[in-house]
Write a protein that binds this DNA or RNA. Structure first.
Lengths: 248, 248
DNA sequence: CGCCGACTTCGGTGGGCGCCGAACCGTCGC
DNA sequence: GCGACGGTTCGGCGCCCACCGAAGTCGGCG
C-alpha cells in the first residue's frame, strides 16, 4: 500500500497545481503547444512554464518534440487525455466553488454541443459536419483523407480556397474528446470554422471556446449539409442530428 | 479556462498527498475506517490524520458518520471509488518507484486477479462471475439489467434476499479497470461479495483490497457457476476461466 | 558573422502545508 | 464523580515549491 500511495500521490501532484492543470486542459485539444504559448495561456512567466513542462514530461503526462528553437508539448497519449478529462469532469467535488453548478452544468452542455478546438469546430456540431461531409462525398477517406472534386467546388462556392502547396495539411482528422469521434481540422476545418463565424452561422458564447449556432446558421447548415441543428441555448436543445446528406 | 483549471487542480490536490492517498487507497475496500485506524495505517499522528480527514470530507471525496466517540470515514460514492482507481492504476507508473518490482508485480497480479471494489468483487474473478451469471441466465441484460426468476431462486438458495423497493439498484454493471469489462455491483454484487467472505470462498490478502480464492471457494465456484478458479498465490495461477456455465 | 527570439538555468523570495505535541473536549465505563 | 480513550484544535516548525527576473544557451535568419 505504501508505494502505491506514493504513486497515486505523485500522479495527482502533477495535476494539483493550478498552472499545470491549466496546461493539461489546454492540451486536451490534442494539439502540440509551445512553452511560450502555454505560459501566456496560464498567465505565468516563460521560465515558470518551462519548469512545469519539465515536471509534466518527467511524470509521463506529456511528451515533447524539439523542433528548431521550439519545444512542442502534447499529451502523452489518448489514455492520458481520458484520464485528465475524467478527473476534470469528475463529480461535484472541488474545494472552491460552493454553489454555482447550475450555470456550470449549462456551460458544460454548451461546450459539449459546439466549441472551437484551436481554429476549427468541435463538439457535437463539429462531428456532425464531418459526418455530413463524408456522407455526401465532399470529403473522402477511402484513400487517405482528401477533398473530392465536388468538395472543392462546394468550398469554392462558399468563397473558400485551399493552399495545396502549403505546409499545413489540407484536411486532417482530429479526435473529438466529448464525442469520441473525429471532426475535421487542417485547412478545411479552419476555413469552415472561419466561414461559419464570418457568415454569422455561429457566435461565441462569452470568452471561452463554446459557441452557439444562430438561427441563420441552423438554416444554412440544413441547406448546405442537411444537418438539423438548433441554437445551443434554447431549452432542451443541445443536439444536432446529421440527416441523410443532401447534395450541397 | 481559469476556474476549470482551478477545479482540476483542487481536485487533484486532494489526492496529491502521500498520506491522503494512503487513506483513499485504504478506503477503497468500501469499509468505514476511524480516524485512528487511518492514522495508524498511514503512519502519522492522529491529529494529522484528523486534519486530512477534514480536507477529504470538505472536498467531497469522503463522507463521515459520527457515532459515539468515533468518527467513521468512507468513500463518498462508488463513483468516487472508480475515480480513485482510475487515477491509481493510470498510465505511466509515476515519478518515484525506480525498481522494487518483484513483490510489487506480484501484488499487482494479485490485485488484477481478485480484489474488492467498494463493496463488491472485481478483477478477473469479478468479471468471470459476471460472465457466468449472464451465460447461465441468472442475470439478463436483454431488457435492461435484471435478475431472472432462476437467478432469484439461486440467490435465495445461497441465503441472499434482495430489497426490490430499496433505493439501491438491485444489480448494476461496473467497469473493471484491469479487465476493461463489466463486473456486477449493486445489491447483487454486494451480497455475493459478502456471501463469498462469509462462506469462506475468499479471504483478504493482508490489509488491502486484494483477496484470495480459497480451495473451498474454488470448489464452490466450480459447483455453483462452472468457474474454474485457482488460489491466487499458487505459482503461475492468477487465472480464472469461465467455462460453459452449468445449471446451478 | 551578428542579431533576434525561444527557451533554459539559476539564485532568491514568499507562502502554503504537512507534521507534530500539548492542551482541550465528549463519550464511555466504572 | 473520575479516569481512560477517541478525536479535535492550536501554535509552531521546517520544508517544499511556485514564482520571478536576470543571465545564459542555442538555433535561425539576414
Amino acid at each position: 500500500m505504501d508505494d502505491n500511495a506514493e504513486s497515486l500521490a505523485g500522479w495527482a501532484a502533477l495535476l494539483a497545481d493550478r498552472t499545470r492543470a491549466s496546461f493539461c486542459l489546454a492540451l486536451l485539444d490534442g494539439r502540440a503547444w509551445t512553452v511560450g504559448e502555454l505560459a501566456r495561456h496560464a498567465g505565468v512567466a516563460v521560465s515558470t512554464a518551462s519548469e512545469h513542462a519539465d515536471r509534466l514530461v518527467a511524470g509521463g503526462l506529456l511528451i515533447q518534440r524539439k523542433q528548431g528553437r521550439h519545444r512542442y508539448l502534447q499529451l502523452a497519449s489518448a489514455e492520458t487525455a481520458t484520464l485528465i478529462e475524467t478527473v476534470a469532469t469528475a463529480g461535484p467535488p472541488v474545494p472552491p466553488a460552493p454553489v454555482v453548478s447550475l450555470s456550470a452544468a449549462h456551460r458544460r452542455r454548451n461546450l459539449a454541443h459546439a466549441r472551437t478546438c484551436y481554429d476549427h469546430l468541435a463538439g457535437h456540431i463539429g462531428v456532425s459536419i464531418a459526418d455530413a461531409l463524408f456522407n455526401s462525398g465532399l470529403v473522402s477517406r477511402t484513400n487517405g483523407l482528401v477533398v473530392t472534386s465536388r468538395g472543392n467546388a462546394w468550398l469554392t462556392s462558399l468563397g473558400i480556397g485551399l493552399d495545396k502547396s502549403g505546409k499545413r495539411p489540407v484536411v486532417r482528422e482530429c479526435l473529438d474528446w466529448t464525442e469520441r469521434r473525429s471532426h475535421l481540422a487542417g485547412q478545411v476545418g479552419a476555413a469552415l470554422c472561419r466561414h461559419a463565424f464570418d457568415a454569422g452561422w455561429i457566435v461565441r458564447i462569452g470568452s471561452g471556446r463554446a459557441v452557439k449556432v444562430t438561427d441563420a446558421g441552423a438554416r444554412a447548415l440544413a441547406d448546405q449539409l442537411g444537418i438539423i441543428a438548433v441554437a445551443t441555448d434554447s431549452p432542451g436543445a443541445a443536439r444536432a442530428v446529421p440527416a441523410g446528406a443532401r447534395r450541397p
